[in-house]
Design a protein around this nucleic acid. Structure first.
Lengths: 171, 171
DNA sequence: CGCTATCTTCAGAAATTTGTGAAGTTAAGG
DNA sequence: CCTTAACTTCACAAATTTCTGAAGATAGCG
C-alpha cells in the first residue's frame, strides 16, 4: 500500500489527470505550458513543486517552467515562495486559487469598460452604435458589481463548509 | 462614396475604436480576426454587416471573414441572418450579445467540473491532492449556480432600465 | 572569496496559427 | 437550365508563438 506522500503515487495516473485537465484549460483559451504547470501544481499532494520537479514531471526545460510560472504569477494563479535555507523556489497553488484569480480579473473588465466609454464618446451617445456600446457597457458595469458580491458569498459558503478559520482544508 | 451602415461617420474614428477594442479582446485571449469582426459589428449603426462590408472595412479576404464569423457563431457571439430576396448574408450582434455568450459559457465550466471529478476519483478523495481538487470543484459548482441567478438579475435590471418589451433599445 | 545550485534571459529552431488566393459549392434570377 | 453573386473550403505561405540549449545572473555555503 502506498503512503499518502508524493512518492507513493502512480505517476501515470497523475499525468493523465494533469494532461487532461490542462487540455480543457487550453481549449478555454489558456496557453499550453501555463495550463500544464498549473494542473501539475493543483494535483500535487503538497500543493507546491519546485522548478526542477515541474521540469521533470512535464518533461520540459527549466526555461519553459520559468516562462510559464512568470505568466501564472502575473495572473495570480500561483504564489512564488522562497524555501528558507535553500536557493530553491517553490510554486504554490491553493484550492482557493481560482477565487484569487477571478477576483483580480476585473482589471480586464475595467479596461473593456474604458474602451467602450471611449467608443460611446467618439461615435456619439445619440447614434445607434453609440447606444449599443452604452448598453454593452451597462452590462459590464452590472457584472462587475455582481462578481464582487458573488465572491463574498463564496467566502461565506466556503467557511461554512470547511470552517471559518481554514482548519482542515487543503489550503 | 459611403458604405451602407457607415453613412455620415468618419471611418477613421470608427476604425480607431474597432482596433482598440479588438486589441483589448485579444489581450484577454480572443483570436485576432474574430475580435476585429466582433468589434466592427458592435460599432456599426445597424448592428449588422455583410461579409463584403466586413472585408472592406477590415481590409481582409472573404475567407478570413468566413472563418471569423464561423467561430463567432459557434460562441454565440453573432447571429447569422439571410437577407430575404438576396443571396447575401448579414452578421448581427445585439447589445445583449455578451449576455447570450456568457449564458452559453457554462458548457466550459461543466467540462472543467467533469475533469476535476475524474481527478478526485483517480487520485483518491482522501489524499491531499484529491481534497484540493474537490474543493476546487466545489468552487466551480458554486459559481455555476451563481451565474444563472446573476443573469436573471441582469434581465430584470435591463428591463427596468430599457423597458420590459425592449422598445427603445438598440437590440 | 570562490564554488555551485538554481533560476532567468536570449537567440534561434520548430511547431502552430493565421490569412490568402483559387477552386468549389450553393442558390437567386433570368 | 444557365449564369452569376455570394459564401465556404482548401492548400500553402507568412507571421507568430512556443520551447530549447546555452550563456548569464543571483545567492547560499564553505
Amino acid at each position: 500500500m502506498t503512503e499518502p506522500g508524493t512518492e507513493g503515487r502512480d505517476p501515470e495516473v497523475v499525468s493523465k489527470f494533469v494532461e487532461g485537465f490542462a487540455a480543457q484549460l487550453v481549449e478555454a483559451g489558456m496557453q499550453r505550458m501555463p495550463a500544464r504547470v498549473f494542473a501539475a501544481l493543483l494535483s500535487s499532494d503538497p500543493g507546491s513543486l519546485t522548478s526542477a520537479e515541474l521540469g521533470e514531471q512535464l518533461q520540459v526545460s527549466p526555461a519553459a517552467v520559468s516562462g510559464a510560472v512568470r505568466y501564472l504569477a502575473q495572473q495570480h494563479m500561483v504564489a512564488r515562495e522562497r524555501e528558507p535555507g535553500s536557493r530553491r523556489e517553490r510554486y504554490r497553488v491553493s484550492s482557493n486559487q481560482w477565487y484569487e484569480a477571478l477576483t483580480n480579473r476585473d482589471a480586464v473588465l475595467k479596461r473593456w469598460e474604458h474602451a467602450l466609454r471611449e467608443g460611446v464618446d467618439s461615435l456619439g451617445a445619440q447614434t445607434p452604435a453609440g447606444r449599443r456600446l452604452s448598453e454593452t457597457l451597462a452590462f459590464f458595469e452590472f457584472i462587475d458589481g455582481e462578481i464582487a458580491r458573488m465572491m463574498e458569498r463564496w467566502r461565506v459558503h466556503r467557511d461554512q463548509r470547511y470552517g471559518a478559520d481554514g482548519a482542515g482544508h487543503v489550503g
